[in-house]
């Protein structure tokens, strides 16, 4: 482990949902998890393991019920949300992007507009070029294909130069070309700007291609967290071995 403190540290973090059918259900129960600065951390696990819930907690889109989330020197929890300025250092790209009914360029500019930063044409062009959509800046966003829309979503997140970029299955249901563009962009962002990436994926191969560190979640708990080499080639937990071999029974 590096000596610098991690970007995130989660201690005793739980999240529970209540529904009329199943009553109260604990969907996340993390005893201790650190996400180091400037690395690509991949969260793997079957559906319902709590991966997306964890991302929402990391972006403060919902609060934990218990526990502490240490972030950039602050400690946050159920009753304490970081200030907006700090929250804005993290952003998420979702599996199904929802774009505004505006042009591609206006969508990319949206986050900057929220921060009162106008006149960013050069940055917008740069962000669109990074995802290969520089010729589509003035096109209405609703005319884009699924893959193009996801690349716009990535561009509108990247342009904010976040400390942490959270990606929730960003390439699910995309064709190989778009998967390639997104993976390449994410890797370049991490390498050139040192952006911390937390990627949720079902795809073991994608995790192998991108991850510096990997965590396996099962039933809301972290089964194993290790550097990519150890995780894929010398896992400690038998459930990790099964998952890596694609044998895990969900």
């Amino acid at each position: 482990m590096s000596s610098t403190p991690p970007l995130y540290r989660l201690c005793g973090v739980t999240r529970r949902y209540t529904s009329a059918q199943s009553g109260m259900r604990t969907v996340l129960n993390i005893r201790d998890l650190s996400i180091p600065h400037g690395q690509i951390m991949v969260l793997v696990g079957p559906s319902g393991a709590g991966k997306s819930t964890l991302l929402r907690l990391l972006n403060w889109l919902e609060p934990p019920d218990d526990g502490e989330i240490h972030f950039e020197g602050g400690i946050y929890g159920a009753q304490r949300e970081p200030p907006l300025a700090l929250r804005r250092r993290v952003t998420t790209v979702f599996q199904r992007p929802v774009l505004l009914q505006r042009s591609v360029a206006e969508n990319v500019a949206y986050g900057l507009r929220l921060r009162g930063q106008a006149h960013a044409d050069a940055r917008i062009a740069q962000a669109l070029a990074a995802v290969g959509l520089d010729t589509m800046a003035h096109q209405p966003a609703r005319t884009l294909s699924g893959g193009e829309a996801q690349r716009v979503a990535l561009a509108r997140a990247m342009i904010l130069e976040p400390t942490a970029l959270l990606l929730d299955e960003p390439t699910a249901n995309l064709d190989p070309y778009n998967v390639g563009v997104i993976e390449q962009t994410v890797r370049r962002l991490n390498e050139t700007q040192g952006t911390t990436i937390v990627l949720v994926t079902h795809n073991v191969f994608q995790a192998q291609r991108l991850a510096h560190r990997v965590a396996l979640l099962l039933d809301g708990q972290v089964v194993e967290e290790a550097d990519a080499e150890t995780f894929f080639h010398a896992p400690r937990d038998t459930r990790t071995s099964a998952f890596v071999r694609g044998e895990m029974v969900y």
Binding site: R56, N59, L61, L84, R87, R88, T91, T92, F94, R96, P97, V98, L100, Y110, G111, L114, R115, R156, A157, L160, L166
Partner: peptide, 15 residues
């Protein structure tokens, strides 16, 4: 309006 929009704009830093 798509209900996911609210959470996505919040993720982009909207108050």
């Amino acid at each position: 309006v798509d209900p996911s929009l609210r959470v996505q704009v919040r993720a982009l830093g909207a108050s």
